[in-house]
């Protein structure tokens, strides 16, 4: 009985210790990454332009079909659910506003980020993890190259550029999905939909979503690469770090989203 309790306590202690270790390593990784990004800003020639283009292609156009599909369906589902509820109260005219605000401020950036986590975040972790196992990271280091500059910076810039663009398209497609439902269910004409959207949705909401997607891009790349660098030394470890990259990314994305939602509300409060 006492032995069990002691075992539990030891287990707890180990978990806390591991958590502390991981936190310290994340902070160290952030520092390393920041230094590498700064180095590439000072010396743009040191950025791996070829890798940058490759990852741009990988994060942007290659992810477009699935992003479009998910966001359009999100818009359809949202519009349908909202329509069923608000039609009872004759509040059809509020639907474009509800759809526009929800997609532009929350669902658009969030769904794009979650798709990108699955597509790119996990790939980053797997790629860097595999490189670690095959000693490629060691090779980079002994060549005098900072692995973060070589591996993280191109991914980071590519994600920072591509995710907002994907979000723009995702937002647009989401609203289009919502319009499809409204036009088929309550026969709302396009110009009415656009006018109501324009009335209810401020431009700042559009920028809010795009700003969020920048933050999400940073989170996805940071966590993906960090988990890659933290991979252990066997093949199973790559799978583990991929999983943890996705789980931690989504957790951080939702946390950041919560925080940003609050922050923007406060900011709008100031603005009046």
């Amino acid at each position: 009985m006492i032995k069990k309790l002691v075992d539990r306590l030891i287990h707890c202690g180990e978990t806390i210790y591991q958590l502390k270790e991981e936190t310290v390593s994340l902070i160290a990784f952030l520092g390393d990454m920041a230094a590498a990004i700064w180095e590439c800003i000072l010396h743009p020639k040191r950025l791996r332009w070829k890798d940058f283009l490759f990852y741009m292609n990988n994060c942007g156009p290659d992810g477009l079909p699935i992003t479009i599909m998910i966001n359009a369906l999100m818009g359809v589902v949202l519009a349908y659910q909202a329509e069923v509820q608000s039609h009872k109260y004759g509040a059809d005219n509020f639907l474009p506003m509800v759809i526009g605000c929800t997609i532009l401020r929350e669902l658009g950036p969030l769904m794009v980020a979650i798709v990108a986590t699955g597509r790119n975040g996990s790939a980053f972790a797997a790629e860097i993890g595999t490189m670690k196992i095959s000693e490629e990271l060691d090779a980079l280091r002994t060549m005098g190259i900072r692995p973060a500059r070589f591996l993280v910076v191109p991914k980071m810039w590519a994600m920072l550029l591509m995710l907002p663009l994907l979000t723009v398209i995702g937002d647009c497609v989401g609203c289009a999905g919502g319009y499809l439902v409204l036009s088929s269910e309550i026969g709302m004409p396009l110009d009415v939909f656009l006018r109501l959207t324009r009335q209810g949705v401020a431009v700042k909401y559009f920028f809010e979503g795009i700003l969020k997607s920048f933050v999400f891009a940073g989170i996805i790349t940071t966590v993906g690469c960090w988990r890659g660098f933290r991979t252990g030394n066997d093949a199973i470890a790559v799978g583990r770090s991929t999983t943890s990259a996705v789980v931690i990314s989504i957790l951080f994305i939702v946390l950041a989203d919560t925080f940003l939602a609050k922050m923007f509300t406060v900011f709008y409060g100031w603005q009046g």
Binding site: K50, L165, C172
Partner: peptide
């Protein structure tokens, strides 16, 4: 990076930017 994927990337960026400005215009 093949020419094909460069074209794809360029097209993607153009579409996204156009959609961005169209969105601004609508709002």
């Amino acid at each position: 990076m093949t020419d094909n994927s460069k074209f794809k990337l360029g097209l993607f960026i153009i579409i996204a930017v156009v959609v961005f400005f169209a969105g601004l215009m609508i709002l």
